[in-house]
Amino acid sequence: MSDELYDKLQSMIGQVTGPYPANDEVNAPMIRHWCEAMQDGNPLYTDEEYAKNSKYGGIIAPPQMVQAYTVPCLWPADEDKVLNTLEILTELMDGSGFPYVVATTTSHEYFTPMLPGDKLSYTLEFASASPLKKTGLGQGYFLTVLYTYKNQNDEVVCKQPFTIFKFKLN
């Protein structure tokens, strides 16, 4: 049986939006707030004295924190906003009768550490789509997008595939 939606998804693979710049540089107060909430006492993030003598020469941000710098602002609203890859997919799936969503897997691969002062940005690529699948939740498609985070020197900081299941109830 042909599946027009699946064919449409396949034709969109490789689409990239961005780069989107981070709202803030990597900075010590945000690192401390993160560590306070997580209760993470890793001295590379929290102890300037220790970190100064490490190979980094000073504190670094927890690598898992990369996305926190690039979450869109609550305010002000971006008047010129263009849909990003994930929003384009969401709009297509919602309009095709698959309105529900659940995040299923994510992964971080780290390449370059984040130091205070670094200016991050990311791109968002549509990486893959599964054929129509039936699960306990309903039937739909597993869609994977790839976040690629870079610093101001164009070094890749982190690659993050993120998979959602867009579905309708059985």
Partner: peptide
């Protein structure tokens, strides 16, 4: 963040996270 903390609490600060796969 909590998974990262769990792993580096075990390894100590010289342990470097290279890749973390998460099934939710």
């Amino acid at each position: 963040g909590l998974i990262g903390k769990y792993l580096t609490d075990w390894s100590g600060p010289e342990g470097e996270l290279k890749k973390v796969d998460i099934k939710l």
